[in-house]
Simulated scan of single mutants.
Amino acid sequence: MNNRGKGREKKKGKSMKRHYMLIGICLLLPALVIYLLFMAYPLCRTFVLSFTNWTGFGEAKSVGFQNFTNIFQDHTFWMALKNTIYFAVFSAIFSVLLGLVLAWLNLYMRRMEGQIFRTILFSPSMIAPTITGLLFLFVFTEDVGLLNSLLKAVGLSNLTTAWLSNMATVKPVIVIATVWRQFGLTMVLCYAGLQGVSNELIESARLDGASELQIFRRILVPLIKPQIELATMFTMLGGLRIYDSVVSLTAGGPARQTVVLPMWIVENAFTYSKYGYASAMCVAFIGVVLIFILILKLLFRGESYEY
């Protein structure tokens, strides 16, 4: 092919590249517009309002860093932050551990039974958090709750308690409800990673005398580290933004001991009309979320495995 032919081919290739790039931009444009309208703009607006005393009506007057100063003196904010971190950390730990173990057990099930098993266990993840809270309300209610009724039926009436009013049990109950809704997603993610592990590698380990537990701990878990990290990220973020299930289970009680940060932000904005202060708490909350993401990145850094 002469130089002129090569030039035409090169020009045609550039034209096709620009054509496909234009198609890609057109396909991405609606998503970009939606992101800018419903994510980027509200976030920027929240940051601006955090420096004002806006009440939802009238002009927003600048107060500088006063809202952020008030956060340090807000006892409820720190209690809500502590509760939010408690729910996020413990729900993430138990969701990931339970989902990982169930994903591993799925490997030993036949295809049809495994599909049914995974569908049943994943279904709680598709239920709205408010519905989850109401379901567990029927379980842990003191008088007519399912758990207390079962304890009485088997002669363990001394173990019955007001699960949602007892300070020692109310937080673990919320963690249980959150784990029940989240572990299915972890199971599916980890199972997808386990399916990608070479069978030859597992059989080789068995021939070398490794037990199933050793294979799980020393081979399977390190090889699905990206899936575990992703599952931990999802469950941790889900715990940090917990709101609906707490409202339906305890409404922040007893004595506001289970109030969480999203609940306190919503209350300040829509009950007390302190939109400026609520925006400042949102900005602080975003900082907390970013810190947790950074911590997770540091925890999961390290060696990579190939298989």
Rank of each mutant, 00 (worst) to 15 (best):
N3E: 13
R4F: 02
G5F: 01
R8D: 08
E9G: 04
K12D: 10
G13R: 13
M16A: 11
M16V: 11
H19C: 10
Y20A: 09
M21H: 02
I25Q: 04
I25R: 01
C26Y: 02
P30C: 09
L32P: 00
L36Q: 12
L36A: 14
V48R: 03
V48K: 03
L49N: 06
F51P: 01
W54C: 05
T55C: 04
F57Q: 14
E59I: 10
A60W: 01
A60C: 07
S62L: 06
V63L: 03
N67Y: 00
I71T: 04
F72L: 11
D74F: 00
T76E: 07
F77E: 05
L81V: 08
N83G: 02
I85G: 00
F87V: 12
A88V: 05
F94Q: 07
L102F: 05
L105N: 05
L107W: 02
Y108F: 13
F117Q: 14
L121Y: 14
F122C: 12
P124H: 11
F136C: 12
F136M: 14
L137F: 12
G145K: 02
S149V: 11
L150Y: 13
L150G: 15
A153D: 15
L156R: 14
L156F: 13
S157K: 14
T160V: 14
A162G: 15
S165N: 15
M167D: 15
A168P: 09
V170T: 15
V173M: 13
V173Q: 06
T178C: 06
V179N: 08
W180R: 08
W180T: 11
Q182S: 14
L189A: 14
L189W: 06
L189K: 10
C190P: 01
C190S: 15
C190R: 03
A192H: 03
N199F: 07
E200V: 15
I202M: 15
E203Y: 10
S204W: 09
S204E: 15
R206K: 15
D208C: 10
D208I: 12
G209E: 14
S211Y: 10
I215Y: 10
I215L: 11
L223I: 13
I224D: 09
I224N: 09
I224E: 08
Q227K: 10
M233D: 01
G238P: 00
R241N: 06
V246L: 02
V247R: 02
V247L: 07
L249S: 02
L249V: 07
G252Q: 04
G252N: 05
P254T: 09
R256A: 03
R256L: 03
Q257L: 04
L261T: 01
M263Y: 02
W264G: 00
E267F: 00
A269Q: 05
A269M: 05
T271Y: 01
Y275G: 01
M281H: 01
A284M: 11
F285E: 12
V289Y: 00
V289K: 00
V289L: 04
L290H: 00
I291R: 03
I291N: 05
K297E: 12
G302L: 06
E306S: 10
